[in-house]
Nucleic acid binder design. Structure first.
Lengths: 230, 230
DNA sequence: ACTTGCATACTTGTATGCAAGTATGTCAGC
DNA sequence: GCTGACATACTTGCATACAAGTATGCAAGT
């Protein structure tokens, strides 16, 4: 067992659980842990240098996110991507973020609009330098900011939490430069509608934008059929 | 320690955690545990006849629901009712359920409509016999059914999970017969709009209905100021 | 009387041991 | 060679022991 990690983390209060949750979630969403893979609490505990307890609590939370399935006395498995889970995640994300953007359109001040513009500009820049991680960072940043502007930041928290399956698809379909440019244009459309105080337009533009990730689904399923359920 | 409970539960897999979560959530929502009250894992473990482990896992989940606040090395407290939490919960519930009812309006079959009618009739009956618990049961049942008809049952799960603070208010304002009758009429309006395939109407009716619970808020805050934050 | 420092009794976070159930490999018997 | 039973080595769920930090009350000093 790795004592350094163990001891250094012991000083912080409740850091291990959150750290383990983030690590495991990233590993699943990035398909580093591939769908269907069996996970062992004990093995994860050894690899991360903590005991089973924080591992367990993280796994229970990931089950709430539908990213793992825990079968008592049998094992814990990375969930396969299911169409129902994707559809549900899409529904939740659309519902929350579209409702948020309507409110944001009514509440955004001039400095808020400037912040949105800045994010879009940063995305352009990331696109030019082909920095895909940075691009997706600002993608999230834009959506988060739109939710925050509704004064219901919870919309983004819950949307993120529910979007595990969607993010897996997004991560599997990363390298599509044409699509990336289209995404920036869609962002500009949304921000433009917010600026012109057109909630209906903003909602519609965001809804279409959110559905773009689904267009990659058939290709991914053909490429990785073993990642999908049934 | 109560060995009977402990042993009887040991046979089932993962039953203790779920049972403890439901018990604690009910206790908080019903204000049996009053807002601001300090909870002790060890004390709860003794009272429920289980060890700290399932208690901990339930409390962590309740923190996700914003119903408790866990302060490391200090204590766990029942969250006070905050206007932000109420507003967030209302936003989430409206967003999810209104989106669901739109889809439900398009998808409901004749037998689904009959089921909705049956629930409303049961509510009438519960009202006549002044059975408030039964009334609220069918209230939930109607909302859950509407979500299920959208083929996104997750909408109801998440709505429920996010509605802890709202349900606390609802439970604190229980005995209002006039209001109850009004609620039934609102339900009938929603179901009627679904039957006539008017998604916009159904959504609007549901939205207004969902906001009714908030009308009780000022009275409750005046009656129990110590339950509220700040 | 008041303040200050320390012992103590809490709290939660983490680690680990035990119980119960399942899959699997191996060996005996046919 | 094939089949079936059993030992074994896993799994998760729960209980408990230990670590570390905080509040509190008491006693001693000013």
């Amino acid at each position: 067992m790795d004592m350094q990690i163990s001891i250094s983390e012991r000083t912080n209060g409740g850091a291990a659980r959150g750290r383990v949750y983030s690590l495991l979630r990233d590993a699943i969403v990035s398909s580093e842990f591939h769908p269907g893979q069996r996970l062992s609490e004990k093995d994860l505990a050894n690899r991360l240098g903590v005991s089973r307890t924080p591992i367990r609590e993280a796994l229970v939370r990931l089950r709430d996110d539908r990213l793992v399935e825990i079968v008592p006395q049998l094992g814990t498995y990375v969930s396969r991507i299911s169409h129902q889970a994707i559809s549900d995640a899409q529904f939740v994300r659309e519902s929350l973020e579209c409702a948020a953007v309507r409110v944001a359109t009514e509440q955004a001040g001039e400095e808020d609009l400037a912040a949105l513009d800045a994010i879009v500009r940063s995305q352009h820049e990331a696109y030019r330098s082909q920095d895909i991680d940075r691009f997706y960072f600002f993608d999230d940043e834009l959506h988060r900011t739109l939710c925050d502007l509704s004064s219901h930041g919870i919309a983004w928290s819950l949307s993120q939490r529910a979007s595990g399956h969607l993010n897996r698809i997004r991560r599997l379909s990363m390298t599509l430069p044409d699509y990336v440019h289209e995404m920036i244009e869609e962002h500009e459309t949304v921000v433009g509608a917010v600026r012109r105080r057109q909630p209906e337009e903003a909602e519609q533009a965001l809804r279409e934008h959110l559905r773009m990730v689904l267009t990659a689904l058939p290709d991914i399923e053909q490429e990785h059929p073993e990642y999908f359920q049934r």
